[in-house]
Amino acid sequence: MTQERILAYTLPALVAVAVIGVWEWAVVALDVSPFVLPPPSAIVDAAVANWQSLMDSAWVTLRITIAAFILALILGVGMAIIFAQSRTIERALFPYAVTLQVTPIVAIAPLILIWVGLDNAERAVLILATIVAFFPILANTTLGLRSADRQLHELFDLYRATRLQRLMRLQFPAALPYLLAGMKIAGGLALIGTVVAEFAAGSGTSTGLAWRIIEAGNRLEIAKVFAALALLSAIGIAIYALLSLLERQLLKRWHESARPKE
């Protein structure tokens, strides 16, 4: 492991240790009420005491996040491929994709809930999270598919390449760095979308981490709220780290972004 990589891991860890230390000290020294800001030690206690229910809820949130991400990936890449084949189709449909993106999820949540039925809150959350995660994949992949070198396009013309050959051997590899960047954004958005949708759905049939936060907040179990928040952050970081690893593995041999710094 290079010195740079070691620093990339140790520096944030040192910051975390320092922040937690100052936080623990300040809460005790300033006599802050645990209903406002519990000390980190209390959050750990709450996490241990509620481990099973928090883990169950985390699994629900993670499951929906992964499903929404995969759905967004399939829909985003699929639509981007269609857009890349025809500017007319792109012009006709892209404004609606943008409309979907800029409409606040909490505003359409009630509608989606009514459409899928109040008993299917999890399905509504999945749809809402997919809508949130879909756009960066669509926008990035569309741009990437159009970014292939013009001279390479001419070479494919010269050898009378089929549309499928052009897509698979030129456009898709050229779009890969863009797609992977879009996936990193979409991974985080899928989690945010899931949590916001869980809040917006607000139904007892959805038992994800957002529901645990609402429940604990209502009972003034603030340490448990923080424990659930810490779990959400951990899931978010894990998703980002996994997608970054995938990006590094797929681009390391050829893309400039993966070239080690001198």
């Binding site: 070479l155 009378r160 051997r169």
Partner: peptide, 20 residues
């Protein structure tokens, strides 16, 4: 040179043959 950066030298040279 208009090479495909994601393909090896061999892959680039093979391109016209694959396409035809």
């Amino acid at each position: 040179a208009a090479l495909m950066p994601w393909a090896t030298v061999e892959g680039n040279v093979r391109l016209p043959l694959d396409l035809t």
